[in-house]
Amino acid sequence: MRIPRIYHPEPLTAETGVTLSDEAASHVARVLRMQPGDMLTLFDGSNLTFTALITHADKKHVKVQLQSMQEDDRESPLHLHLGQVMSRGEKMEFTIQKAVELGVNVITPLLSERCGVKLDAERQAKKVQQWRKIAIAACEQSGRNRLPEIRDVMALEDWCAEPDTGLKLNLHPRAKQRINTLPLPVTRLRLLIGPEGGLSEEEINLTAHYDFTDILLGPRVLRTETTALTAITALQVRFGDLG
């Protein structure tokens, strides 16, 4: 049986007792129905993992005793920052979950001219908190021990204007360059994925102004969530640790 992996939001030290967060305790006790004597793996985002013995478990509180500690680096050599124009409903959640599994380091939700998601500041903040929880769950499932950063929502132009020393890519249906023709090596990359209706001509010109390189994935038109995952996978194969 696979030992469950649980994220702990505070730094951990071997051979100490720890009380799990309320959310983690609820998952361990109510969902997994684990009992004292069962084992967990805890990680705190520092690339360290800890074996942990459950010493107390009820519906509200779970306490563990940390035992052995080991470094477990599963991060890609490619630092990848995804700028994703927000998509409707579960599509954005799906994109974030799979991007985390594929090794993305930073995700910034974006607003663009044709973005179909209209949220006020309060609802944006709630969405971001929800997406951060999805990222944590994806790390627990996939074995990542560093949490990717899920940033607050930004306007497309503000994001494009941020200083970045890495390669900057924008997917464009009329681009001539493909991922497999980009020169090696690349260790830092910023990837822009537009909305379901695509970027406007003015926004495409904006990306060119900020030195984004247009690339083409292939001959077929992909949905925005398919585009993100296809591009991330291809970039990890070309520059990262897949394949």
Rank of each mutant, 00 (worst) to 15 (best):
Ser142Gly: 04
Trp159Lys: 06
Arg223Pro: 13
Leu217Ala: 01
Leu199Asp: 02
Gln141Gly: 00
Glu140Asn: 12
Ser87Val: 13
His81Phe: 02
Ala14Met: 11
Gly197Gln: 11
Ile96His: 02
Ala138Lys: 11
Ile3Trp: 04
Ala99Pro: 10
Gln35Arg: 15
Gly240Glu: 11
Val128Arg: 06
Ser112Val: 03
Ser112Arg: 05
Ile6Val: 13
Glu157Met: 08
Leu66Val: 08
Ala121Pro: 02
Leu32Asn: 05
Ala175Lys: 05
Ile179Asn: 04
Asn205Pro: 03
Asp152Trp: 08
Leu42Tyr: 09
Glu10Asn: 12
Gly166Asn: 09
Leu191Phe: 07
Glu149Thr: 14
Leu156Val: 06
Val237Leu: 14
Ala52Glu: 09
Arg188Tyr: 04
Ala135Lys: 04
Asp214His: 12
Ser112Leu: 02
Arg114Asn: 14
Ser76Asn: 10
Ala57Glu: 01
Ile6Thr: 04
Ser200Ala: 05
Ser26Tyr: 09
Leu189Arg: 04
His61Tyr: 07
Gly45Ala: 08
Phe43Met: 06
Leu222Ala: 10
Val18Cys: 05
Lys176His: 12
Ala161Pro: 02
Gln67Ala: 10
Leu48Trp: 12
Ser46Thr: 15
Met39Lys: 14
Asp120Gly: 08
Gly243Ile: 01
His79Ala: 13
Asn105Val: 02
Leu111Ala: 05
Met154Gln: 15
Lys91His: 15
Phe43Lys: 06
Leu82Thr: 03
Leu48Val: 11
Lys60Gly: 09
Thr95Ile: 15
Asp73Gln: 10
Ala125Asn: 14
Arg223Val: 07
Asn180His: 14
Lys127Met: 11
Val62Ala: 08
Asp164Met: 11
Asn180Gly: 01
Arg174Leu: 00
Glu202Gly: 03
Thr187His: 15
Ile179Tyr: 04
Val18Asn: 09
Met69Asn: 06
Ile6Arg: 03
His8Val: 07
Arg114Pro: 10
Ala175Phe: 09
Thr213His: 04
Leu235Ile: 00
Val186Tyr: 00
Asn145Met: 00
Arg223Ala: 12
Leu48Cys: 13
Pro4Glu: 08
Glu113Val: 13
Ser142Pro: 06
Ile96Gln: 02
